[in-house]
C-alpha cells in the first residue's frame, strides 16, 4: 500500500513538474494525469509482468508501476537520443517493449482492437495472460471501441477494457458523450460484464482489475471496467479548461483527490506518519528533478535516424533520400 502511495506521489510530482517545464518551453507538450493516479496504480499493480498493456497517452503512472525508470520517461518527453522510441513521437506517447507496454498513437480508441488482437494471439499460443486497453470516456464513442468490444465478446478474449472516465473529453462533458447511464453498461450489448467503480479508491480498482484478470486467464472472457475519476488539469498543455468548466466543479472533484484519500487511509491505519509523508514527497521531487536534468542534458537524436525504422531495411528510394539529406540536399537529391 505504501508502495502504491509512493508511485502515486511520484506521478503527481512528475505531472506538476511537466506542466511547468512545458510552460518554460523545455518540453513541447504534456497531457497530465492528476486525479487518475489511483485508477492507474491500482490497475497496474493488479496485472502481471507477462500481461500486455495497450495504453493511451495519459498512462504515466502505469509505466512507473511497470518498472519504467523516470529517466526513460523523461528521455521520451524530451525526445533525446536515449529515448527508446528515438524521439519519434510527441511527449506522453511512450511504450517499452521489454515491459510489454505497446507504444500508443494519438488517434482515439485505435489501441482497443489491437489489445483484442494480441489477446487472440495469446489464446492461439495458449499463453495464460491478459491484455489490457486503456482509454477514456471519449473513446467509448470511437469506431474501435465498438469493434474491439464486439470482437472480444465474439471470441471470448482475455482482455480488460479499462475506461478511465475522467468526465471530460477535451471540452465535451461525459453526459454529452453518450445517453447511456454508465459507460460500463455498454458491455451488456457485447455479452460480457461491465463494472463501475470509484476510481479514486485504490483498493476498489485493484480488486476489480484483479478479478477481471483472473476471469480472463481462466478463459471466461473480457471485462469492461469504468473507473470514475476526474481530470484535475487540462486535457493537455494545449487547452484551457476554464473555457468549458467551472472552478467550483474542479474544486469539488479535488475534495476526492485519490492521493489525499489514500494518505488519510494510510495515516488512519498507522502506516504513514506526517514526517514519512513529507519525506515521500521530497524524495519524489528530488528524483523527478534529477531524471529531468539528466534527460535534458542528453544529446538530441541523430538526424540521419530520420530514415530508420520506416521498414526493417531501407528501400532504394529511402536510401537515396537519406544520401541526399546527408549531402545537404532536399528529398530529390542533387540535379541529374
Amino acid at each position: 500500500m505504501l508502495d502504491a502511495y509512493r508511485w502515486m506521489v511520484v506521478a503527481r510530482v512528475t505531472d506538476e513538474r511537466c506542466l511547468s517545464l512545458q510552460r518554460q518551453g523545455r518540453i513541447g507538450f504534456y497531457a497530465p494525469l492528476a486525479g487518475q493516479e489511483a485508477a492507474q496504480v491500482g490497475t497496474a499493480l493488479a496485472m502481471h509482468a507477462e500481461d500486455w498493456f495497450f495504453p493511451a497517452y495519459r498512462e504515466l503512472a502505469v509505466a512507473l508501476v511497470r518498472g519504467i525508470p523516470l529517466r526513460s520517461i523523461f528521455d521520451q518527453l524530451v525526445g533525446n537520443s536515449q529515448d527508446v522510441s528515438k524521439g519519434r513521437q510527441m511527449p506522453n506517447h511512450f511504450g517499452f517493449r521489454d515491459k510489454n507496454i505497446v507504444v500508443p498513437s494519438s488517434p482515439i480508441g485505435t489501441q482497443i482492437t489491437q489489445a483484442v488482437g494480441a489477446a487472440m494471439a495469446a489464446q492461439r499460443r495458449r499463453d495464460p495472460i491478459a491484455t489490457i486497453a486503456f482509454f477514456g470516456d471519449g473513446a467509448t464513442s470511437s469506431n474501435d471501441f465498438h469493434a474491439g468490444l464486439n470482437f472480444a465478446g465474439v471470441f471470448g478474449t482475455p482482455t480488460i477494457f479499462l475506461c478511465q472516465n475522467n468526465q471530460w473529453a477535451i471540452s465535451l462533458p461525459r453526459e454529452k458523450q453518450t445517453r447511456s447511464a454508465t459507460l460500463a453498461e455498454k458491455s451488456n450489448a457485447y455479452g460480457f460484464p461491465g463494472v463501475v467503480l470509484d476510481g479514486n479508491d485504490l483498493n476498489a480498482v485493484y480488486r476489480a482489475v484483479g478479478e477481471a484478470r483472473a476471469r480472463a486467464v481462466r478463459g471466461e472472457g473480457p471485462t469492461l471496467i469504468e473507473a470514475q475519476v476526474y481530470r484535475f488539469g487540462p486535457h493537455s498543455t494545449s487547452d484551457d479548461p476554464h473555457r468549458y468548466r467551472s472552478d467550483a466543479e474542479v474544486a469539488a472533484a479535488r475534495e476526492r483527490d485519490p492521493i489525499q484519500r489514500l494518505a488519510r487511509e494510510l495515516a488512519e491505519a498507522g502506516v504513514l506518519e506526517a514526517s514519512a509523508d513529507k519525506a515521500i514527497w521530497e524524495t519524489a521531487r528530488a528524483e523527478v528533478a534529477r531524471a529531468f536534468e539528466a534527460a535534458e542534458g542528453t544529446p538530441t537524436v541523430d538526424p540521419l535516424s530520420l530514415f530508420d525504422d520506416v521498414f526493417e531495411t531501407r528501400t532504394p528510394q529511402l536510401e537515396a533520400q537519406r544520401s541526399g539529406f546527408a549531402a545537404g540536399a532536399g528529398s530529390g537529391g542533387g540535379a541529374p
Binding site: 482492437t113 489489445a115 474491439g148
Partner: peptide, 21 residues
C-alpha cells in the same frame, strides 16, 4: 471468420502481429 468490421479485422490483425503472429 470475423464480424463485419474492417477496423476490427485490421486492428486485431495488428495486435496479433505485435504479439508475434
Amino acid at each position: 471468420d470475423t464480424p463485419l468490421s474492417e477496423t476490427g479485422i485490421v486492428g486485431t490483425a495488428i495486435g496479433m502481429a505485435l504479439y508475434g503472429l
